[in-house]
């Protein structure tokens, strides 16, 4: 199993201006995230709004650089890539966005949208480009005659197919999917998830799958990383985490997900998500955790291995005795 993506301590800090005469505030969107992702595997990043999952996606997609940390993609340094390797990196990582209505240029035909990556990055002839576009359209389940239609003539699910096709035109090895199905209807969601699974099997793609929906994640992921306020709470194999979540936040999330909380004790997190501008001093979840102690408020727990996964909780051992769900 070859490692395709390896991140060490990825951090992204935004300076929020507060007028001319005050120091800008520092917002740590992602604080020291490390993971490895192998070809053909799916790592799901789960969390609520403001947990840094989208920022992580943008860093891995090279849309914005990390403030610190290391990121290697396919053996290349992706933080400060030498200019000669930038095009290769570009072609290795692609992204699919959440909202298929915003991610396609409304003034361009589907064929043009799909052709564009080839025009920019290759010297293929017009005929060859067209052949590849039609091939890709067939692969994602679009009909050839839809080649010359505009995005507004498609439903949300079909648009997401177009977005996936565009991302795959350059034969990337890593596809970052930022909530790719959460804007879609139930019946269409399943179609797109199936497509993603099929494409992974066929092309050996690695997915960095960003989602807030644990139901979707349990279906599609191999590994799961739970984030809260820019920090990893629990990270490990899907089976482990879903069978016996060791972090109170993971437990809360599972209990709160509709349709998954039926047989569990209903834990409802207290209060609101704290502002990322002013995170709690100790454990970031301490303000809402039902098991909080003084130690939690003082001391931020480190991510440590336990029961074949990583967990960042002082008292994770306590949940080992709980029966597996």
């Amino acid at each position: 199993m070859s490692v395709l993506v390896s991140a060490r301590g990825l951090t992204r800090v935004y300076d929020i201006g507060r007028g001319w005469f005050r120091e800008p505030a520092h917002l740590q969107a992602v604080g020291g995230v490390s993971f490895e992702l192998a070809a053909g595997h799916t790592l799901a990043v789960v969390g609520e709004s403001g947990c840094g999952k989208s920022t992580l996606a943008r860093m891995v997609t090279l849309i914005e650089p990390p403030s610190s940390g290391r990121l290697m993609i396919d053996g290349l340094n992706a933080v400060t890539p030498p200019a000669s390797e930038k095009p290769r990196l570009r072609r290795t990582v692609q992204i699919v966005f959440q909202n298929p209505y915003g991610s396609l240029n409304p003034r361009k035909r589907v064929g043009t949208i799909l052709e564009e990556p080839l025009i920019i990055n290759t010297n293929l002839s017009k005929q060859e480009r067209r052949r590849q576009v039609l091939e890709m359209m067939a692969k994602v389940g679009l009909r050839p005659e839809q080649h010359s239609r505009y995005p507004h003539m498609f439903s949300g699910g079909q648009r997401q197919r177009i977005a996936i096709a565009r991302a795959l035109m350059l034969s990337p090895k890593l596809l970052v999917a930022d909530e790719p199905v959460s804007a879609l209807d139930m019946s269409v969601q399943a179609q797109v998830l199936n497509l993603l699974v099929d494409l992974q099997a066929e092309l050996g793609l690695a997915y960095l799958f960003i989602s807030h929906d644990l139901g979707v994640v349990r279906h599609i992921a191999h590994d799961v990383m739970i984030m809260y306020l820019g920090v990893v709470m629990e990270h490990g194999a899907k089976e482990r985490i879903f069978a016996r979540p060791l972090h109170p936040y993971t437990q809360t999330l599972l209990a709160a997900t509709p349709g998954m909380g039926k047989n569990r004790k209903r834990i409802i997190a207290k209060g609101e998500l704290p502002s990322p501008l002013n995170p709690p001093a100790g454990c970031v979840f301490s303000t809402r955790c039902p098991y909080v102690t003084d130690q939690c408020r003082r001391e931020r727990p480190v991510l440590r291995p336990l029961d074949e996964r990583l967990v960042a909780c002082h008292y994770a051992e306590r949940f080992l005795e709980q029966p597996a769900a």
Binding site: E48, T252, P258, A269, R288
Partner: peptide, 11 residues
């Protein structure tokens, strides 16, 4: 709303 908040509101 976020999942944990969603649960609060439904409750």
């Amino acid at each position: 709303l976020d999942v944990t908040i969603q649960a609060q509101i439904l409750d």
